[in-house]
Design a protein around this nucleic acid. Structure first.
Length: 146
DNA sequence: GCCAACGTTGGC
DNA sequence: GCCAACGTTGGC
């Protein structure tokens, strides 16, 4: 799961109550569907810093709550407000994510060097999704790097 | 700041 | 339903 550290960094997550955040702001249907349909409490999460000087995996986290309506879509003052969404028929959802532990920064440039990760979805050319599945083999390999 | 890639919008 | 225009993502 990608987060811009200028918005929410791994250290920000560590300082939050219960070290947990609602993963608000996803406004892409594919990424939303991953949260809605594939993610359940206890699932492992790679917390990734994107759009920053040192992009890469910054920590391990886990899903701590099933997907539910994203609070920010209903708030007209919020940058993620969606006028077409209603509480009766919400368009956007998010899961909650809880920190497991901060890791060393595993840079994107390093991830690209491992043949074991050659097919990792988030590393594929042109991928822009902020949330992508990680294969079990990729997950296990990454555990050995951090 | 550039730009490739790709998603969304809206006229027709 | 097509597709041009536009917006966003995110590495570099």
């Amino acid at each position: 799961m990608k987060s811009e550290p200028s918005d929410v960094s791994i250290d920000d997550l560590a300082s939050l109550p219960d070290q947990t955040i609602d993963w608000y702001g996803v406004r892409n249907y594919q990424a939303r569907n991953f949260m809605r349909d594939q993610m359940k409490p206890g699932d492992g999460v790679l917390f990734y810093h994107s759009n920053c000087a040192a992009p890469g995996i910054a920590g391990l986290a886990e899903v701590s709550k099933l997907a539910y309506p994203d609070r920010t879509q209903f708030d007209p003052e919020h940058r993620y407000f969606d006028a077409k969404s209603t509480p009766e028929n919400p368009r956007w959802v998010n899961v909650d994510v809880k920190l497991v532990r901060k890791t060393r920064l595993l840079p994107l440039t390093e991830l690209y060097t491992y043949p074991q990760l050659a097919n990792m979805r988030t590393l594929q050319r042109g991928n822009r999704l902020s949330i992508t599945p990680v294969d079990p083999g990729e997950w296990e390999f990454i555990q050995t790097l951090i």
